[in-house]
Write a protein that binds this DNA or RNA. Structure first.
Length: 589
RNA sequence: GGCCCCGUAGUUCAAUGGAUAGAAUAGAAGUUUCCUAAACUUUAGAUAUGGGUUCGAUUCCCGUCGAGGCUACCA
């Protein structure tokens, strides 16, 4: 649609002798009740046209119609210039944009982007919050790839630290040598079980000490089990053989569990980073910062940066005893990632509770003069809350990812069977279908919401399968497939397509033609929600169209051709956009 | 206290500063001779509040109220 804004800018230059950037001219879809497909709002131009909005619209419209063969006509209502594009234009966009195999895939733009997401802790299984993170990260990576970037998906695994020791210690104490094999539990769930057990034991010990007269703070510090965990962490850092061996064993259990969950979710990674390898990084950056005078040292030898000029606080970079903090490590890891890949952009998919941390991180890197720091972006998303409040792994009040996926598939099974949809299916086909539908419902449910908004999830109300949902879109696609197979057409040749479009169908085609723009827009804003909401609108339009046409004009030859054409186009858009979101589309359901 | 984010139908979500604020669910009433009713049709229902900016504000700015987050020598 750039050609319209370009021409409109020229029109304004020609008519009113005013320079205006084509990008500043807003296009929007014409509302259904008016004639035309594309609308330019002319109110802003009246400042320099010195004419009424209507007259300005007429003048620009006449210019466009005269200059552009694609513009078939226009009408003006108040400050709205509604443009009708020619049938040729729509036919061409069908051939040139939608039917080619590389539909909605942009040429490589030569830029590299890293998307870091998931970033689990190895002391507990994944929960619903991680699911949102994983789906956002994965779909953003796919959207960027479709928009022409070379994408590197990374996962920074938090595999060390006091919380890992807690699970390990509890397993040593209460585990009796339990393994995933002996217990039949998935590895990550087994380890998570001991993390919860630790917390229980810790709480009861702290309560005892408190009853014995200690303050709450003292009790929390002095509980024997937390001391033991701290000792274990020190042993780990010292490379103690026994501790390291236990750590490796339990982490291996967790990784096996994660792999299963990732696979089921349909996400993957190109590169793993482990904090056990990166937690000592960043000290050279501290030296660099001190040398450049960006950081300063306090009397107790700790290192700080003063960001009060940026509206932030003073922030600790290195402890007085020379050990790292979170920030030290992240500074080092950022440098490591850049050295490994030299990417133009790097996106961190991390919850909004860490907004402050990333603001500080990016500011520091810029102050250090890292030229790549400008490409860093925190894709911040809202927490997933339950009606009862925040999820807490320690207290076991979480919606577990594996359980959730089980439930989704179970619901898909029940509803599908109740509708008698799978009578001719083999057992394997059924299972695959339940998985596709269940996961489609879950993914769509999480992705259609603006990432930055907090998301409320009620476990007692199952995720909808009807209405504005993944299964609805999947169903639309399946129905289109069905049309195509009955018509025995797998592709469409130019001669089959009538040159004329009925206005009603044209409305649909207008929508279709916008899809590549949507991808660019989504890539720019890193928002799967844009793609998701769009494809739903499309599916709905198709359904309405299908009902009206099939009932009223089933025998009309022209209409059949339109329908077929529309089916191919919308089936393609739906399939493509679902793929971008990481949602599978079934051939039939 | 300081900083950040968010307040839209009963509920869950939409709306680059543009036309009559859209959907879906839940509610009410209908539609299976049709390429598959996971669908379709009809109906009722919302911008927290007070100012400001402008041709025009859900959107931008300021205040108030409300919810959440951050404000660790945890990660």
């Amino acid at each position: 649609m750039n050609f319209i804004t370009d021409a409109a800018a020229k029109a304004i230059k020609h008519l009113y002798n005013t320079d205006i950037a084509a990008g500043d001219i807003g296009l929007q879809e014409t509302r259904k009740e008016f004639e035309g497909q594309i609308t330019i709002v002319t109110f802003p131009f009246t400042k320099f046209s010195k004419k009424s909005p209507e007259q300005t619209g007429h003048e620009i419209g006449a210019y466009l119609q005269n200059e552009l063969k694609e513009v078939a006509g226009f009408n003006v209502i108040k400050g709205f210039l509604n443009i009708s594009l020619s049938d040729d234009y729509w036919v061409n966009s069908l051939y040139n944009e939608i039917l080619p195999d590389d539909f909605a895939v942009f040429q490589p733009n030569g830029k590299k982007v890293m998307v870091e997401y998931s970033s689990p802790n190895t002391n507990k299984p994944l929960h619903l919050g991680h699911v949102r993170n994983n789906l956002l990260g994965y779909s953003v990576a796919e959207i960027l790839a479709a928009a022409g970037y070379e994408v590197i998906k990374t996962n920074l695994v938090n595999d060390r630290g006091i919380h890992i020791c807690k699970s390990m210690l509890a397993w040593q104490k209460f585990g009796n040598g339990e393994t995933p094999e002996s217990s039949g539990l998935k590895g990550d769930h087994l380890v998570g079980k001991y993390y919860v057990l630790f917390d229980k034991a810790y709480k009861s010990q702290a309560a005892e000490l408190k009853a014995a007269g200690q303050t709450e703070e003292e009790a929390k510090k002095n509980a024997p089990i937390i001391r033991e965990a701290q000792e274990m962490l020190q042993k780990w850092e010292a490379g103690d053989k026994e501790v390291i061996s236990l750590w490796k064993t339990m982490n291996a259990w967790v990784y096996a569990g994660f792999e299963e969950t990732y696979k089921r979710l349909g996400v993957n990674f190109d590169k793993f980073y482990y904090e056990s390898n990166t937690y000592l990084l960043g000290k050279d950056i501290v030296d660099e910062g001190l040398q450049k005078g960006v950081f300063f040292r306090k009397e107790d030898n700790s290192v700080w940066i003063d960001l009060t000029n940026e509206g932030l606080d003073q922030k600790l970079i290195l402890r007085g005893d020379g050990t790292s903090v979170y920030m030290t490590q992240d500074l080092g890891t950022a440098q490591l990632k850049y050295d490994d890949f030299h990417m133009d952009k790097s996106i961190y998919v991390v919850g909004n509770e860490q907004d402050y941390h990333f603001k500080v991180l990016f500011t520091i890197l810029k102050k250090l003069g890292k030229k790549w720091a400008g490409g860093l972006l925190h894709l911040s998303y809202g927490m997933v809350d339950l009606p009862s409040g925040k999820m807490k792994s320690r207290e076991g009040t979480v919606v577990d990812a594996d359980d959730l996926m089980d439930e989704m598939e179970q619901t898909a099974k029940e509803q599908t069977e109740a509708m008698g949809k799978v009578d001719g299916f083999t057992e394997a086909e059924r299972l695959e279908l339940y998985h596709t539908i269940g996961m489609g419902a879950l993914k769509y449910f999480l992705l259609k919401v603006d990432p930055k908004k907090r998301l409320l999830f009620d476990p007692n109300e199952s995720v909808d399968f009807q209405g504005h949902t993944g299964p609805f879109v999947q169903y639309t696609h399946a129905r289109i497939r069905s049309v195509l197979s009955r018509a025995a057409v797998s592709s469409i040749s130019k001669t089959n397509i009538p040159a004329k479009f009925d206005p009603e169908e044209r409305d649909v085609i207008v929508t279709l033609s916008k899809f590549p723009e949507m991808i660019e827009q989504a890539a720019e804003g890193y928002s799967p929600a844009i793609v998701a909401n769009y494809v739903y609108e499309l599916a709905k339009t198709y359904n309405k169209f299908y009902h009206e046409k099939s009932i009223l004009q089933a025998e009309d030859e022209t209409t059949k051709q339109f329908r077929l054409q529309l089916s191919i186009a919308s089936g393609k858009v739906i399939k493509k956009s679902m793929a971008l979101l990481g949602i599978e589309v079934p051939e039939r359901m």
